[in-house]
């Protein structure tokens, strides 16, 4: 599953719903270095839109890709600064 990205860390938020996937993604990103990529694995279907909105509105992060499949939503977020 882990794709072409060299992911530094994987955050498992399966079974958790709004707002926890976002809140925990933010916390995980805070613990990383610039250039690191965080993989977020969620079951919350709202996480597609929410992670997009969060990444758009937050400085220092870039949403690389979102993969949907089998009730699993995987997001790749890069810490840019």
């Amino acid at each position: 599953m882990s794709s072409e990205y060299d992911t530094t860390e994987t955050l498992d938020v399966k079974g958790q719903s709004c707002p926890m996937p976002i809140v925990k993604t933010k916390q995980a990103i805070d613990g990383l270095e610039a250039g690191n990529v965080l993989e977020v694995v969620a079951t919350d279907s709202g996480s597609i839109s929410d992670i997009q909105g969060w990444a758009d509105g937050t400085d220092g992060v870039e949403l690389l890709e979102q993969v949907e499949g089998d009730d699993l939503y995987t997001h790749y977020v890069k810490k840019t600064e």
Partner: peptide, 11 residues
């Protein structure tokens, strides 16, 4: 609480 924690995640 949901809105507050989410906005905090936006910085």
């Amino acid at each position: 609480l949901i809105l507050a924690s989410t906005a905090a995640a936006f910085g």
